[in-house]
Every structure is written in C-alpha cells, then in structure tokens.
Design a protein around this nucleic acid. Structure first.
Lengths: 64, 64
DNA sequence: ACAAAAAGTAAAAAATACTTGACATTTTGT
DNA sequence: ACAAAATGTCAAGTATTTTTTACTTTTTGT
C-alpha cells in the first residue's frame, strides 16, 4: 500500500523525489517505489529518510 | 554495532533466537546477525520483530 | 498554450538480505 | 560433571532490494 505519510513529509520539506534521493543516497526510482508502496526498504534507508525529513521511524513506517 | 535493545527485549519475553525467528518467519541465523549488528534488515522484518516483542520501531531500531 | 520540471513506470543488471546446512562454543538445568 | 539447549559463526546458494537506462504522463510556472 502507498506510504502517504512519507509523501506528505517530503512535501512539507518541499523536496522533490530526486532531492530526497540525493539526500539519502539512493536513486529517484527507489524513493518513488517506496512512496508507491511497491516494496520494503532496508532499515538503514528508512533511517536516512527519517533524518532527511525530521521524522521518526514510527511516524513514517509503523503499520498496524 | 550490536543491537542490545533487541537482545534485551527478546530476553524480556524469554524467547530464544529460534523462537523469535519462528514468530517472525526468518531463520535463526538472521535474528542472530541482526542482534550482532552484521547487516540491515528490511523494514518488513523489523516490523515483524517489533510486533513479536511488543515494541515500536523507534524503541528497537532508532539510532542517533 | 507552451516549456521545463517532476512524477510514474518498466526491464535488465548489480548489490545485498536471507536461507540452508554444518560445526564449535557457551550457557542452563539436573 | 554431564547432557541438552542456546548461541556464535562460516560458506554457498536463493530471493529480493536497488541501480541504471529509458520512455511516458502529469504538474508547475510564465
């Protein structure tokens, strides 16, 4: 399923997918796929994304 | 680096590495390697571990 | 309306998470 | 002390993430 919290947090910082990709050291397609919910990133990448967006793991990646 | 919070949370539930592996659907070696800090698991596996141990992502996997 | 930037998507290759099997060492219980 | 259970570790193979390249569609600004 889509990760709208991530999309929203990225928008709040006014970052493009490319900018967030550069900040976290991955490709734009990877960011796109994570937002789209296609597959599960590694915790290392999740942490990098959280730090780039000033969010916690629970805020962006927790699911019930 | 070692993930002692994970090791501690597992001990609090009195689970062996094998038991936690069974609960989360991975091999014992994978749990062992994560505790040892050898590599980065996927967020999906992190979530499964958190749920098995009644912990949040931030409690077990956040790093500063 | 138009151009430029951003986002969506796909296939093949590369990198790495995870498994399986096997054995050594440490810990636990009696 | 002894046996059983738990943990640590390694190597080779499999599964999945991530990259690269490329193209299409949507959004944004003038």
């Amino acid at each position: 399923m889509k990760n709208l919290r991530l999309k929203s947090a990225r928008a709040a910082k006014d970052y493009s997918q490319q900018q967030l990709a550069d900040l976290t050291g991955v490709s734009r397609q990877t960011i796109n796929a994570i937002e789209k919910g296609d597959y599960n990133p590694t915790i290392k990448l999740c942490l990098a994304i959280c730090k780039a967006l000033d969010k916690t793991l629970d805020e962006l990646f927790w699911e019930d």
